[in-house]
Design a protein around this nucleic acid. Structure first.
Lengths: 253, 253
DNA sequence: AATTGAATTTCAACCAGTGAAACCGGAGGA
DNA sequence: TCCTCCGGTTTCACTGGTTGAAATTCAATT
């Protein structure tokens, strides 16, 4: 998207067509043409090319296109680094470069959350985020996301844990979680740390289980409420893409 | 390869580059250029394109290219039909159309082999191959392949099974198996059925275990010894491609 | 400092890729 | 039956995207 300088248009278009298949299993020529905004002829030729190389195949019944066996062949060669900490890194870097703020990835471990991956903003004033850091589940945007999307039973266990502060009003808290689920993301301002705000969104696996929280954090001065609201869709989008990268339905840890 | 008429060259080249990654995990620009025979500049631009779209990513340490997260996203949308009988069908059809003879897929079940998938030649005189058929492991090209590549212990059990004919000279038979492993395929002429010949090659999973035998069979008149020798490389190639499509290292049945 | 090897960028030429429009063929309706 | 519609396929002329060679940068080695 940035440096269009040294790219090959025809190849880009072919890849765009392939990417349609992350959204829907089957596409007809016309559907793809509409969705991508390309000319029918162009799409046709690219489809012939993709089919010829085995990246797509036609469903004989519906006449529509589906992904072909080459994708299997390729994905088989990926199966090593299933580790989200490695797997998600490029996507996190992308997000960091887009928003210019520190990006962290958290998972829940009992009554704590752990930062399993992070990429820091390039700005001189920035959120520093050491990997491996552990924080209580009671505060922070990521914590709220991790709790909000935890399965109900787990949520009950968490809320009834002896370590859970009595000072937190359970009813108000539940309302907050509901609100987070409604919006799809959580924010926090100087909740865990003075001067720091954060926006966090859930990463789901294919079964819809939360496997991690993706957070963007920075100084309150820069990460204002408007800013966070504006960032939220981008973070949610990145988190969704990350979720799609996870094989099977395995939850993390 | 056949109808080059309506394909887009630039897209084809991009896909060729992607396909390199079925053979090796990491490639440098120069390696790809040599392997594909394309100009370095061309490869460079296509790599930039592929990386920009997330189909490739660079290993920061080695500076080389690897497959990117988009492949995950796509393969996630495939994860239904893991069944080789379904999975291999397109490849088998391809082979059938290329050789114009009946193609069968066998797995070993104890002392028998079972045809779990088949596509028949279009010719009027052809090998008819009902799916589900069971045959003894003692005769036929596919049987020999299934035995030749079975793990040593399994092989011993098979050869010592009471159902194994005493008339077969163990020493000669072992020599035959060795020869098959050396060549990578097996043939048979009127061994199991009068008038029928067959060529078979092994399908391995990623761990190198045999999971099936891919066989091409037809009338001895058409499937002469020369013909079978000529077909063998194509069958082996198809079997290899099929093997690469299998997720994980799981053996079939 | 010089040398190698690899990735990146420039550049001019040309042909591959493009969109518009024509064509085809089957499904469905009058 | 004929007609129309609507996808997919093919043709065609134009042009600008793609290409290879060569120059350039950059880092690692000697």
């Amino acid at each position: 998207m940035e440096d269009k300088k040294f790219t090959v248009r025809a190849a880009e278009r072919a890849l765009d067509i392939l990417l349609c298949f992350t959204e829907k299993r089957e596409w007809s020529l016309t559907e793809i043409a509409q969705h991508t905004g390309l000319n029918k002829s162009t799409v046709y030729r690219l489809l012939v090319t993709l089919e010829g190389k085995g990246f797509l195949r036609r469903n004989p019944e519906t006449e529509k296109y589906r992904l072909g066996f080459r994708i299997w062949e390729l994905s088989a060669n990926l199966s090593q680094s299933d580790d989200p900490a490695v797997l998600f890194l490029p996507e996190m870097e992308r997000l960091r470069d887009e928003l210019e703020e520190t990006v962290s990835l958290y998972i829940r471990d009992g009554m704590e959350r752990v930062r399993i991956q992070a990429v820091e903003s390039h700005q001189t004033i920035r959120r520093v985020a050491p990997i491996g850091d552990r924080m209580p589940l009671t505060v922070g945007a990521s914590s709220k996301v991790l709790v909000a999307y935890a399965p109900p039973e787990t949520q009950e266990i968490i809320l009834n844990d002896p370590s859970w502060p009595e000072t937190i009003d359970r009813e108000r808290y539940r309302k907050q979680l509901e609100e987070i689920r409604r919006r799809g993301y959580a924010t926090s301002m100087e909740e865990r740390e003075a001067g720091a705000s954060a926006v966090a969104a859930p990463v789901f696996n294919r079964l819809g289980e939360i496997i991690a929280a993706l957070a963007v954090s920075g100084p309150v001065g820069r990460l204002t409420e408007e800013k966070m609201e504006a960032f939220a869709p981008r973070i949610i989008e990145a988190a969704q893409r990350m979720g799609k990268m996870v094989k099977g339905g395995a939850a993390v840890r």
